[in-house]
């Protein structure tokens, strides 16, 4: 049907852009279809009040039950605190850790990329602690930084920081030598070469590092709220699991998923705006 319609149009109308737009629309449609199918399976398996659930609600509550749990949480909060408070405190821990990693890690990575001696001093220790599972250090962090927010922030920052430092360093080191030489031949001094060549050329790599570490950061949030706290969205899901309140667990999981997804989208949008030259070499 669509094909015969296309055939009726003059050839000029089917230029690259139009075809690309069409393909894009089709892709989006297919993607929404995937989610629709997954959601339907969820509805079907759990009955959703329409028929007998095939899976016990204790294992997988229906979308309706999850939505009701969400409404109850919105109205009554969880364990004496509002849902917004739990989300807020988790976001605070996450955002503080991440801001620190970007504000300190990116400049440090740039410095490491620029200077061999500094790299020789700082890179080996960072590389050495990188493979250590940071969650294993949680008890130590609790002793060092107390049971307050600081230990949670440190746990989240611990794996994110080296990723951001190393990716910024690699980004600097992989800046095309030709571009640097071109700038030098044009009379640019070290500072100009850094500010107008090395820094912009490294931005795509830095963004990749930030995006990769976002999901790790959200994962670490769960680890951070495992113990020694009684607030936060991951803590809510973890304690609800102890009482087999699967609906509340799912609300918590979905909120964290949406948080991770939204942050990724924001960074992607920023990336598309700020580093339009990414991957264009």
């Amino acid at each position: 049907m669509a094909q015969s319609k296309a055939l009726e149009q003059p050839i000029e109308a089917l230029d690259e852009t139009t075809l690309e737009l069409r393909a894009g629309r089709r892709d989006r449609w297919l993607t929404s279809l995937t989610f629709l199918v997954l959601f339907s399976i969820w509805v079907a398996l759990t009955g959703s009040g329409l028929w007998e659930p095939l899976i016990k609600p204790i294992f997988l509550p229906s979308p309706v039950a999850v939505f009701e749990a969400f409404q109850n949480l919105l109205e009554g909060g969880y364990q004496g605190r509002s849902l917004g408070y739990h989300v807020g405190i988790s976001f605070y821990r996450f955002a503080t850790a991440f801001s620190f990693c970007i504000l300190v890690g990116v400049p440090l990575g740039l410095l490491l990329g620029m200077s061999r001696p500094i790299r020789a001093v700082i890179e080996p220790p960072i590389e050495a602690i990188r493979p250590v599972p940071k969650l294993a250090l949680l008890p130590l962090f609790l002793i060092w930084f107390g049971i307050g927010n600081l230990s949670k922030i440190v746990v989240i920052a611990a794996p994110v920081f080296p990723i951001i430092v190393i990716s910024a360093m690699q980004a600097v080191r992989s800046v095309s030598q030709k571009k640097i030489q071109a700038a030098q031949a044009l009379g640019a001094g070290t500072l100009t070469v850094f500010r107008r060549v090395v820094l912009p050329a490294s931005l795509p790599g830095i963004f990749t590092g930030i995006r990769v570490s976002l999901s790790i950061g959200v994962t670490m949030l769960v680890g951070a709220e495992l113990t020694a706290t009684s607030e936060g969205i991951a803590w809510m899901a973890l304690t609800a699991a102890e009482y087999l309140s699967t609906d509340i667990v799912l609300v918590g999981v979905l909120i964290m998923a949406i948080m991770g997804y939204t942050l990724d989208r924001i960074v992607r949008a920023l990336e598309a705006r700020l580093v339009h030259w990414s991957g264009k070499d």
Binding site: K179, Q181, A182, A183, A185, G187, R196, P200, A201, V275
Partner: peptide, 28 residues
Amino acid sequence: KPGRERGVVFQQGALFNWMSVVENVAFG
């Protein structure tokens, strides 16, 4: 060391993709 009295044109890939064409030329 490199110097402005010697202009260099490379094979390719030496332009600054983050600057517009006019900024590339104005860089020197």
